[in-house]
Design a binder for these strands. Structure first.
Length: 567
DNA sequence: GCCGTTTTCGGCCCGACTGTTTTCAGTCG
């Protein structure tokens, strides 16, 4: 939560509206009203600029937000909450919301359990299920009791969304069930999200072939059918949809999502007199169904440009596709170098010489060697004297390498906003990345000013992993990214998209905000080990999700232009 | 609650699977 004196972030506003949606759902309110709140929350959490300063009229002009919700947003900004939310909260225990997180339990079930058995929490539910008091309710039976207990166990064991690496591990476990070339992994995995909830697969092989294979390699079969089968692997859900080859495009489109994108596309279809589903497109009057073996045919049929999976979030891409004005996104093959790697001079594994070889192998024009500075006991950080010695070694390596090692540093932004190396030393370096590695719990305004002083430092070229998040382990620190972005534009400082799958920092939402305001993005793998250079693809995907074009991304510059930019 | 080149009222994406029912409600994606 936030103090009354401080303006709420879009994320905080969205959380309240989302809570409202869930409470209304438990109360059995009109599903469209429920959806309106949930949709508004979704839109707000991805909205490019802060809503807090906007008046009611401007808020209501945002698609998906009407007069009513606009008023509630103003209330949140002014008072920290809104009256209607407080009223409904006072009648429903907080702990009921958590019950909604259990697999197979939705608002109707929660309401029934609560009103009939006074179940208010997961612990209550477990007790009632174990003592077989649930099967006494109409519509509930033995199987439901078992599935509730199972859902509780899964919930307690699960640690939420997967990193890209964990998702790859789950995907690799199920791939052997499918014949190469006959399937595709869809869902948020295909859209390139920085974290993945579950794995979705579309296959053209029939269920009677695939189901036995899935059964043998899965840890658990959740449900099994001719059209869809769900299993659990490594504690994560894997959904498989079976499709005829001539309908593969429709099924892939449907299962890739996002949900919001699918809804938008189906609305477009309706407006043209069609019904769109995972089997094809039907003429609403004639009832004739057209089938599509590829997604491209569907987009063409709807008279829109094809939308790449990374953009499918209902974030304005549908309108742009209809007017054939989608942006040209940055591509992996336009990347000419890695802007953040570590060598054995600090905590990396490769020597300078080996970095150069690695860069040649990857076809890079350059690699920025950016070891840690020697502050705060970070493993083997470099002091001013070591930077000088490292410079000689880099010079030597560059004599015999087609990949130029650029002499950089990842210097600490200290708690007071000063940098971990003297100005003279930083002036000798070709590229300076400044990052926060300590004091994560500083108050928002202090942290923001701390990072701003690095942005304003003449020597600093790039702000490293700007929010400091570690996926699944550490929340982003409190920072006003809007102020950072605005100041970065004024000073020509780039923001990093740290491509490590444990970070992906900054993420799509901030990238779109930054490039929309003319701030360059620097993709760095932060590689400490030769295997980590391939993280570049995660960074490129994240930038594409943030609507970044080639010219928005520093890595597309040639070595000469990059050095000129950095000087 | 939101929205409107048919509409300011009456719509709101669409289908699969389970468990509990005897034809469907609830949940999920």
């Amino acid at each position: 939560m936030f103090s009354a004196a401080m303006e709420p972030t879009n994320h905080q506003i969205a959380e309240q509206l989302n809570l409202m949606s869930e409470l209304l759902e438990i109360r059995g309110e009109n599903v469209f009203k429920v959806r309106a709140f949930s949709r508004a929350a979704d839109i707000i959490s991805r909205y490019g600029s802060p809503l807090a300063p906007l008046d009611e009229k401007s808020l209501a002009s945002i698609p998906g937000i009407g007069k009513n919700i606009a008023g509630k947003i103003r209330e949140i900004v002014d008072t920290g909450t809104f009256r209607e939310l407080e009223e409904i909260k006072s009648g429903i225990p907080d702990s009921l919301i958590e019950l909604l997180r259990l697999e197979g339990i939705g608002p109707k079930t929660v309401a029934t359990l609560w009103t009939r058995l006074s179940v208010e929490s997961i612990d209550d539910l477990e007790r009632e299920a174990r003592s077989h008091r649930i099967r006494a309710l109409r519509g509930f039976g033995e199987k439901k009791e078992e599935s509730f207990l199972k859902a509780i166990a899964v919930y307690r064991e699960q640690s939420g969304r997967m990193t890209r690496l964990e998702a790859d591990a789950v995907a690799d476990r199920v791939r052997p069930a499918f014949t190469p070339g006959t399937y595709e992994i869809a869902g948020s995995y295909r859209r390139g999200r920085s974290t993945i909830g579950d794995i979705d697969v579309v296959t053209t092989e029939p269920a009677h072939v695939i189901n036995p294979r899935l059964r043998s390699l899965a840890d658990e079969v959740i449900d099994e059918g001719d059209k869809r089968t769900s299993v659990r692997v490594l504690g994560k859900r894997v959904d498989v949809r079976f499709s005829r080859p001539q309908q593969f495009g429709s099924m892939l489109l449907y299962l890739t999502g996002s949900k919001a994108f699918n809804i938008r596309l189906r609305e477009i279809a309706i407006s043209k007199g069609f019904k769109l589903n995972e089997y094809g497109i039907e003429d609403r009057t004639a009832g004739v169904r057209r089938e599509f073996s590829s997604e491209a045919e569907i987009f063409a049929f709807l008279s829109m440009d094809p939308v790449v999976p990374e953009l499918r979030e209902d974030w304005g891409e549908v309108e742009r596709a209809l007017t054939r004005s989608l942006p040209e996104l940055v591509r992996q093959d336009a990347i000419r170098g890695d802007l953040h790697v570590h060598s054995s001079w600090s905590d990396g594994r490769l020597t300078i010489e080996q970095l150069a070889r690695k860069g040649e192998e990857l076809g890079y024009e350059y690699i920025v060697c950016s070891d840690h500075s020697a502050t705060l006991g970070i493993a083997h950080g470099l002091d001013a004297e070591a930077v000088g010695r490292q410079s000689h070694e880099i010079e030597l390596a560059n004599r015999s390498s087609s990949c130029r090692i650029i002499h950089g540093i990842e210097v600490d932004i200290l708690a007071d906003g000063t940098l971990g190396l003297p100005s003279r030393t930083l002036g000798d370096l070709e590229i300076v990345i400044a990052s926060v590695h300590s004091g994560f719990s500083q108050e928002r305004d202090i942290m923001t000013r701390r990072v701003l002083s690095a942005v304003e430092n003449d020597h600093v070229d790039i702000i490293g992993h700007p929010t400091g998040r570690i996926l699944g382990r550490r929340q982003p620190y409190a920072i006003d990214m809007d102020r950072v972005i605005d100041r970065a534009r004024e000073t020509g400082t780039a923001l990093e998209c740290n491509a490590s799958p444990y970070r992906l920092d900054i993420d799509d939402v901030e990238i779109r905000k930054a490039v929309g305001r003319g701030v360059r993005i620097a993709i760095g793998t932060d590689a400490h080990d030769p295997s980590e250079f391939e993280y570049m693809r995660y960074g490129v995907t994240t930038c594409r999700r943030g609507w970044a074009s080639g010219s928005d991304v520093l890595n597309t510059l040639g070595v000469r232009d990059l050095l000129e930019w950095g000087s």
